[in-house]
Write a protein that binds this DNA or RNA. Structure first.
Length: 866
RNA sequence: GGAUGUUUAGCUCAGUUGGGAGAGCAUCGCCUUUACACGGCGGAGGUCAUAGGUUCAAGCCCUGUAACAUCCACCA
């Protein structure tokens, strides 16, 4: 299909993805090539993909397409995540809206609902991957709850248990009373909430003493208080240590003990201690062998220990309890203040620290291994940008044990069995054969437990499969900085522990996409940008280009419709350059390789653009190799606009129009340059690239089979640069002259030109682009004309410009040159510059100096002659 | 309290080994010249937050300061 005048991205995109997929171009497995492997961060089956996924997938796909074009056997493995708590929250909500809940329908029916949910959303996710154009190998797609992943998860659990790295313990954990499950520390989001600080009177037992005043933000936990703690150095309370006070909530007696944990300056300096509902209190409780009564249920209601408040919700209890204490005359005051309150990441409920029995991973030895590994040069994980390694290290050097059990149903069931008759525990990947005598642990594992194994479980581990042997460890991982400790850190320690290798060599970290005002996109603000809307409006090529090039690595970006539009215009520009070239090249011309062209047929401007091209290929390749897509795209953008379109394509019209011996060289140069540009824009915007590619006179079945351009030394002609730059400067100077003198751009002028090289081969270009009436090459200055002095040449324009104006213009030019000359001169007269700067720089400066000097003399002479 | 990032044109942002400041949008003037008006040509607009330091040379390296942002840890 020929290229139509109008760029219609819908038509451009249509059918291409399906073709690539059907022809197997996404498949890895060519073992004759060097491998490059990557896995997609498994998409949560909770809902549609948002723009955060788009940037993730775009960077991954650019990397993969680039590597494939560079000749690698690329594996880009897709998959989805069951996303335990997140999905369960959605399914719970769905059941609620239907007037039922999971407990009513039971575990089996609930899981069925979950699978149905997963199926429908993984379908949507597939559609979105296709829309984004990512080259994932569908033949290797995985799901965190598929058979292989279950096998891996069970093995890891059992092994860690046997090594003593997984244990079951009774500890304070953060409980989500809505989802009714324990959470790990990093699933808590601290938010500033309006809070109340209640000051209560604790009256003394037996002795006559002013009551103690103790403040709390959570009065309901007073039912679980076991003592009052003061600092032993606190003079105010020196005399009351060992005495007893009355708990105003329930009238129980509380001993006063001393521990230097208490901050003298905070509050009243006296603290109530609730070992079962506060992690710090728990530590104190343990230290002094105190009781730890649990006064709150996991659903946020009060236990029977709370007397008449039993069964009541914690917030309701708080309200009524405060009222009761006030009535008893034990309320001193209430202060309002802002404080940080932990919320559940998923349900947004205020989390409650509750003592309960959970499964944990002992982090210290695993984390130490990560730190050790990062310290060694050999197998360390390289972060791009580097600074993010610090986030990993920081987290690894002070992380608590990881609570991995969740009181949910959707997920990997913990492979632990309790005997019905004895106290035996069986930790095993396989169900016991006499299952009737056992009860399996009710809980499931934290979603991140399986995600942590993603780089190797997807390749067949724990089996020594061909894929595992060939593609592990991965070459690269792409993800956002917000997920480094949720995911990256855990993959690294599990990888090191179970495969003895870091799971990937490089990690590319990107920022998040914010809204146009710089705010984080969120459901509550309703400011999210749906990538599908953007694609429908501007096309996926433009969206990808925008996402990959707008911010520098690791930096957040603002979504900007103007920039997506600008990307669209850019792609249209490339497309039209192709249209122009294909229009002008004879149908039977098929030379696209450097070896195909007779170098003698290349004109100076052909040589110039080829030399520029080879230079830009070199620089872009270097940027691509270090995942610097912003820099790479910027280099290409400048080349496309300034060198390729604005200059070369315009110049080529001269040789294309007339019969001349350079015509063939121009055909070659046009096609060669176009193809190189295409290949360099292709990883960013594959659809439009494919469309243009398939219109080239010589092409393979798809651009996906084509190679990235390589630097071809036989097409580098350094001597062309200076001469053609002079031509360029001359054209620009004449254009400028016309604008400055209010002449129409196509005003025909008589121009003479004096150059210090043979300008003849270039004169036809200058004639055309200056709309010259005549262009005469001269050896001497032309008197009585306007003169423009440029490096390497001087222009004389016959025009009715008066002497005064010319004089003013030349004086201005002279001043400018003079200041440059001075700058250059001072540098060159600086001994230390001459002795310390690299020779290259010194030579360059000397050259500049000579050039300025020549120009200076030329202008000065002209002024004198006037 | 600890850590990181940002501060460059009116706005949003690039600027990688330190060697004459760039883009998009906006703005002003000119042009429908047969690739592109989703365009072309030309222009205006920046003591690169601030104070020092290193260097022949600093937007870039080092130190301090300020403002903003983010993450971690947080006192009942």
């Amino acid at each position: 299909m020929a290229l139509e005048k109008k760029y219609d991205f819908r038509q451009t995109e249509a059918g291409k993805y399906e073709k690539w997929k059907a022809k197997g171009y996404f498949r890895a497995g060519d073992t004759s090539k060097q491998r490059f492997s990557m896995v997609i961060p498994p998409a949560n089956v909770t809902g549609k993909l948002h723009i955060g996924h788009s940037i993730d997938n775009t960077i991954q796909d650019i990397t993969c397409r680039y590597k494939k074009a560079k000749g690698f056997d690329v594996l880009y493995l897709p998959g989805v995540d069951h996303a335990g708590i997140a999905t369960q929250a959605k399914v719970d909500a769905k059941l609620n809206s239907e007037g039922t809940n999971r407990f009513e329908i039971g575990r089996e029916a609930f899981l069925k609902e979950c699978y149905a949910w997963k199926d429908s959303y993984s379908h949507i996710i597939h559609e979105q991957w296709a829309k984004m154009g990512i080259m994932v190998d569908y033949s290797r797609e995985r799901f965190t709850l598929d058979e292989g992943c279950i096998k891996a998860v069970n093995k890891v659990f059992v092994d860690l248990y046997n090594e003593g790295l997984i244990y079951r313990g009774e500890r304070i954990v953060n409980y989500d009373p809505v989802m009714k499950t324990a959470l790990s520390n990093i699933e808590i989001i601290y938010k500033e909430d309006e809070g109340e600080f209640f000051y209560f009177l604790y009256r003394f037992v037996d002795i006559d003493h002013e009551p103690l005043i103790i403040a709390t933000t959570r009065p309901e936990t007073m039912f679980g208080d076991v003592c009052v703690v003061v600092n032993p150095k606190d003079k105010r309370y020196k005399d009351v240590i060992g005495k007893k006070v009355i708990n105003p909530a329930n009238g129980e007696e509380l001993p006063i003990i001393a521990d230097d944990y208490v901050d003298i300056s905070f509050g009243t300096g006296a603290m109530k201690c609730t070992p079962a509902h506060d992690p710090n209190d728990f530590i104190i409780g343990k230290k002094y062998g105190l009781e730890h009564p649990v006064i709150m249920n996991t659903d946020g209601t009060m236990t029977e220990k709370c007397g008449k408040y039993a069964g009541m919700d914690r917030m309701e209890c708080r309200k009524l309890l405060v009222k009761q204490i006030e009535e008893d005359g034990n309320l001193e005051k209430i202060e309002h203040f802002k404080h940080q309150v932990g919320h559940s990441e998923r349900s947004d409920a205020v989390v409650e620290p509750i003592l309960s029995k959970q499964w944990f991973i002992k982090m210290k030895p695993l984390a130490d291994r990560v730190l050790e590994n990062q310290a060694s040069a050999k197998d360390k994980v390289n972060f791009f940008p580097k600074r993010f390694e610090k986030v990993l290290k920081q987290w690894m050097s002070n992380c608590d044990d990881w609570c991995i059990s969740r009181q949910l149903w959707w997920g990997h069931r913990i492979p632990v069995y309790y005997s019905k008759t004895t106290n035996d525990i069986l930790v095993s990947a396989q169900k016991p054969t006499d299952m009737e005598n056992w009860v399996q642990d009710e809980d499931v594992l934290d979603t991140w437990f399986s995600s942590a194994l993603w780089p190797f479980e997807t390749l067949g581990w724990p089996d020594e499969t061909e894929d595992f042997k060939r593609y592990y460890p991965l070459d690269c991982m792409v993800t956002g900085y917000d997920i480094i400790f949720f995911w990256v850190a855990r993959m690294v320690f599990q990888g090191l522990h179970f495969t003895d290798k870091a799971p990937f060599k490089d990690v590319i970290i990107h920022g998040i996409v914010r809204d146009s005002q710089g705010r984080k996109m969120s459901k509550s603000l309703g400011n999210g940008v749906d990538p599908i809307d953007v694609i429908n409006e501007y096309g996926v090529d433009s969206l990808r280009y925008f996402l990959a090039t707008t911010a520098s690595p690791g930096q957040d970006m603002r979504f900007s419709e103007e920039k997506v539009k600008a990307a669209n215009n850019y792609l249209n520009k490339i497309r039209n350059s192709a249209r122009f070239i294909l229009m002008n090249i004879p149908e039977d011309y098929k030379n696209l390789e450097a070896k195909d062209v007779d170098k003698k047929k290349l004109s100076l401007v052909d040589k110039y653009i080829l030399t520029k091209l080879e230079n830009v290929i070199k620089r872009i390749t270097k940027a691509m190799d270090s995942y610097e897509y912003g820099i790479a795209s910027n280099l290409l953008y400048n080349f496309v606009y300034d060198d390729y379109c604005s200059f070369y394509l315009e110049m080529s019209k001269v040789t294309l129009k007339d019969e001349n011996s350079y015509k063939e060289g121009t055909y070659f140069t046009l096609l060669y340059t176009l193809k190189a540009v295409l290949m360099m824009i292709y990883p960013f915007s594959p659809f439009i690239s494919e469309e243009i590619y398939l219109n080239l006179p010589v092409h393979k079945d798809s651009i996906m089979l084509e190679s990235y351009p390589e630097l071809d030394k036989s097409l580098v002609f350094k001597s062309s640069i200076k001469k053609v730059e002079a031509l360029k400067a001359a054209i620009e100077a004449i254009r400028q002259y016309k604008v400055n003198n209010s002449l129409a751009p196509n005003e025909a002028l008589d121009i003479s030109l004096k150059a210090n090289f043979d300008f003849k081969p270039l004169s036809k270009y200058l004639s055309r682009y200056s709309f010259a009436k005549s262009l005469t090459l001269v050896k001497e200055d032309k008197e009585g004309t306007s003169s423009i002095v440029l490096p390497e040449l001087t222009l004389f324009i016959e025009d009715s410009v008066n002497k005064d104006e010319l004089k003013a213009k030349l004086t201005k030019d002279l001043e400018k040159i003079e200041s440059e000359l001075k700058r250059s001169e001072s540098m060159l007269s600086n001994e230390r510059f001459l002795s310390k700067a690299p020779k290259q720089k010194v030579d360059l400066e000397k050259e500049k100096f000579e050039m300025y000097k020549a120009q200076f003399e030329e202008i000065k002479k002209k002024l004198e002659n006037l």
